[in-house]
Amino acid sequence: MWDYTDKVMDHFRNPRNVGVVENPDGTGEVGNISCGDALKLTFKLDAEGRIADVKFQTFGCTSAIASSSVLTEMVKGMTLDDALKVTNQDIARELGGLPEEKMHCSVMGMEALQAAIADCRGESLEPEDDDDHEGRVVCHCFGVTDNKIRKLALENKLTKAEDIRNYSKAGGGGGCCLDEIQEILDGVWREKKESPEESVQDAFLSLPIIQRVIRIQEVIDREIVPMLERDGGSVEFLDLNDKVIKVRLKGRCASCPSASVTLRHTVEGKIKELLSPELTVESVN
């Protein structure tokens, strides 16, 4: 018979915050069924980046359930930075102590929290990455480091600060660090001495349709339209049908005798270069 404190038993009998937060900002899953305990922690942040809602699902013994339950109470209202400082000792202390043999339950709570926070920040917890040490904090709102940004960029072939924001929330607070993030990204790809778009090519066709459309729109807006505008023309992206992009040439281009050359070389050439050689472009009038 384990010597559980009244607080452990209270949290076991009346667990707080059981379940899964809908559309969570962070999900941490640690342990597995063969180990005999597993914890899935989900939380949602408020506008200020504080843990507004947090829920747990635990497969495990009395103290695993109690550790998870008390953890949700402890971290609610915390910023992620503060939540990351919560140690397993804190969890055990909050419960009035755990049997020595059951301390792993509190460790599981801490790890799930860290994993959930890492998930929230788009971080990977892979320990083998040597660069994944502390690093310099770039985004102070979400505590994202330059190392983390580089890692994310390389692993996910991200070129723009907005991508980093989507992957890690860095810059998602006030947005004041987005320029700095972009500088880091530019440096990453300069160092790699390769165009990130080259490596994007293969991946392009496997993107979800909405992502492909967005990418095409971005390439047309940023790369192609400015070129055509120099000549008083423009192009409008209409549709994507499998690998066929439908556009409408506008302005001078629409009536230009060499419209087909423009279409083939300028528009399709840039699309093939930056997105995928598989793509073709057709003009619709």
Partner: peptide
């Protein structure tokens, strides 16, 4: 399936 024995015993003990 899908739950842990000690927790079951503690609840039964209640």
């Amino acid at each position: 399936d899908f739950i842990e024995g000690e927790a079951i015993l503690m609840m039964l003990d209640e």
